[in-house]
Simulated assay, not measured.
Amino acid sequence: MQSVLESLYYGDLVPHEQSISHSPEHKLLNEQITASLNSWKKKLSEDDFNELEALTDLYHQIQGIDISSSFTNGFKLGAAMMIEVVSGMSSPVQQQDT
């Protein structure tokens, strides 16, 4: 059995693939977004709808950056907590400006 670090190194562990929620609320909201986009597709010209899709693509890109940052910050916080626990020392956690 591979360690977590080996799994991460060899690409067997891909955290962003695990982050999709399977909650009923997520599914419902996703269905509402799809229905809304389909409604806008009927109302808008093809060019206008393409602009709307480009906007949603930009939103998804920034959301991906935010999720990556949250993962990184959470990992650093977890590592800092483990260092504190193992060393028996406490030190203030540095906070980064957002």
Score class of each variant (00 low, 15 high):
V85Y: 05
V4L: 02
L29W: 15
E31H: 12
Q61M: 12
D66K: 04
Q95Y: 07
K76W: 00
L77H: 06
V85P: 01
A80T: 04
D66A: 13
F49S: 06
D97P: 01
D12Y: 07
S87L: 08
M1I: 05
Q2K: 02
S19L: 11
G88C: 10
H60I: 08
I62K: 05
L5D: 01
N73A: 14
D48F: 04
T72Q: 08
L52W: 03
K41L: 08
K42H: 08
K42R: 14
E17K: 06
I65H: 02
T72I: 11
D57W: 11
S68D: 11
P15E: 04
D47W: 06
S3C: 02
A80K: 01
Q32E: 12
S36N: 06
D47N: 11
E84V: 02
V86H: 00
Q96H: 07
F71G: 06
I67V: 14
L8H: 02
G88E: 08
S91V: 08
A54R: 15
S21Y: 05
H26Q: 15
Y10F: 14
N50M: 14
N73I: 09
E17N: 10
L77W: 01
S70M: 13
L8C: 02
H16W: 06
L29P: 04
G78K: 02
Q95T: 15
Q32N: 09
E6A: 01
M1V: 06
Q96G: 10
S23Q: 13
S23C: 12
T56Q: 10
S68A: 14
K43E: 13
N50K: 14
M82H: 02
M89W: 05
S23A: 15
T56F: 11
L5I: 01
A79Q: 05
H60W: 10
L5Y: 00
S39W: 06
K41F: 11
K27F: 07
Q2G: 00
Q63S: 13
S36I: 03
S69L: 13
A80N: 05
T72F: 03
A80R: 02
L37W: 09
Q95G: 10
Q18F: 09
E53V: 14
S90C: 03
D48E: 15
L55M: 11
S21V: 15
D48W: 03
I62F: 05
G74A: 07
L37T: 06
D12T: 04
I62L: 09
V93H: 08
W40E: 10
E25M: 14
S70E: 14
F75L: 15
S87P: 04
S87R: 02
L44Y: 09
D12H: 10
Q95H: 12
S45R: 07
S68I: 01
E25V: 15
H16T: 10
D97S: 11
E17R: 06
T34M: 08
D97E: 12
L28Y: 07
S69D: 12
I67E: 09
S21W: 12
I20T: 13
E46C: 07
S91A: 13
N73V: 09
V85G: 01
M82W: 03
L37H: 07
S23P: 03
S90I: 13
I83C: 01
S7K: 03
P15K: 01
